[in-house]
């Protein structure tokens, strides 16, 4: 089981004690948790603590999470709240100049909505990538390799002619735009895996 499995499969499996399913959920949302933590400018150690508290809370919460698709929202909210609580709790000993107003309502704008929107969009792009058939996903990841790979290396890696990389890239990006994640339709229905549906 990996991050490309739908949440409707991963969440019930994790609830039943499947460690691989849990790890896949972690892999899928760690970047989101990390981005929200970074946005609140916590110290490295506090960031580690918040991240771990979020995952421990999710372990507790799995049993009562009726709707797997509510998970991204739950993670977002829990991470934000935990960041704010730690900032407030640490505020006693470490000045927090980031928070100019009073109370939670005043704290919210400090982490710019636009920044959170960008965080959200990056998560959607990762979800969209996970929806693509493996070949397409692999091509896009190779095109984004760090350090960059030339078309020749990509051609050798995927066993496709150099001339078809450009057109395949265009088709892959078009398919990415049509994923449920980017069309704002939410996850695919239970029982239909991306590869069977789209491959």
């Amino acid at each position: 089981m990996d991050t490309t499995y739908p949440l409707a499969v991963l969440v019930p499996a994790a609830r039943e004690g499947d460690q691989d399913a849990w790890n896949a959920i972690v892999d899928r949302f760690l970047p989101l948790v990390g981005a929200i933590v970074r946005g609140h400018r916590l110290s490295e150690a506090d960031g580690d603590d918040v991240s771990q508290t979020v995952w421990l809370r999710l372990v507790e919460h799995l049993g009562s999470l009726r709707e797997p698709d509510a998970l991204p929202g739950w993670i977002r909210t829990t991470t934000r709240n935990e960041c704010l609580r730690v900032l407030a709790a640490r505020g006693r000993t470490r000045p927090v100049d980031l928070l100019a107003g009073t109370g939670l309502d005043a704290v919210e704008p400090a982490v710019a909505d636009e920044q959170l929107l960008a965080v959200e969009r990056r998560q959607l792009l990762r979800e969209a990538l996970a929806e693509l058939p493996e070949g397409r996903r692999e091509l896009l990841l190779l095109l984004l390799a760090d350090p960059p790979l030339g078309y020749e290396a990509i051609s050798a890696r995927l066993g496709i002619p150099i001339g078809s990389i450009g057109p395949t890239r265009a088709r892959a990006l078009e398919q990415l735009r049509r994923t449920r994640a980017l069309r704002g339709l939410g996850p695919e229905p239970v029982g239909v895996t991306g590869d069977e549906e789209l491959g």
């Binding site: 970047p31 998560q123 792009l125």
Partner: peptide, 25 residues
Amino acid sequence: LAALGEAVAEDRAVDERRRAAAYGA
């Protein structure tokens, strides 16, 4: 593709210590 690059970079930047701790949770 550039936006996707940022999203993928965020994934690649995940601290492995945090990942291990989260698995362990």
